Simulated scan of single mutants.
Amino acid sequence: MVVAAPSSGSGKTTVATGLMAALRERGLRVSPHKVGPDYIDPGYHALATGRPGRNLDPWLVGEERVAPLFLHGAAGCDVAVVEGVMGLFDGKGDTDLASTAHVARLLEAPVVLVVDAARQSRSVAAVAHGFATFDPRVRVGGVVLNRVGSDRHEELCRAALEAAGVPVLGAIRRDDAVATPSRHLGLVPAAEREGEAVAAVERLA
């Protein structure tokens, strides 16, 4: 599955890493992947899965090599989780080349859309519906609501998404214990956080 979002900062790394760790805790062999050349997120993926995080980048290797590299990395695993980059359809220039959507199409993999629900309720359905219908070649399997504030907030979001025909796969409350610090190049690498990073991954699971 591909974990994507409408934009950066929506919680892709949080959800992807937590999902990887939770699946591993269930006894599954999880293959972690990341769209693009990023090396920081795969460090968290490796903590969560016990396997090296692998990059999938059509811009660097050509789209014809993405699926073979994915299959090589996922050999012997039960499930593969691919964390996207930026917004789902954001690619090179005014195209979706090397975007998360591009990789999802190449792998024919379903997309889990992470939507930051903070400061909105019914509007999450408009966002999710737009992303689910924008490109019929990209299959959005459902939504994970992130940064939900309360039971009532979750009920409003779920009702709106249900009415829009977009499945809700789960909801995550705001939790400072799982926040991952950032700096100008992105997240602070897991190796620089040592025990703190391990504790965060366990909390995410």
Rank of each mutant, 00 (worst) to 15 (best):
A197V: 08
R24P: 08
L60S: 11
R193G: 02
E64A: 15
S10C: 12
T100V: 05
A205N: 13
L185H: 10
R173E: 06
H129Y: 13
T13I: 09
T133I: 00
E192M: 12
P6E: 02
L71W: 11
W59A: 13
Y39A: 06
V143W: 09
V111R: 05
A22F: 02
L107H: 11
A160R: 01
R158Y: 06
A160I: 00
R158V: 15
H72A: 15
D38T: 03
A199Y: 10
R174K: 13
A5F: 07
R29V: 15
R24D: 03
V114P: 14
G53I: 09
A197C: 11
F89I: 08
A21W: 07
V79E: 03
N146K: 14
A160E: 00
L113T: 00
E202M: 00
A21T: 13
G53N: 08
R54N: 10
H45E: 04
D135N: 12
A190H: 04
F131W: 11
R105I: 06
L187S: 08
E162I: 02
A67P: 00
T133V: 12
G62L: 02
L204F: 07
D175K: 08
S10D: 15
G73L: 04
A118G: 01
A21P: 07
A159K: 15
A117C: 10
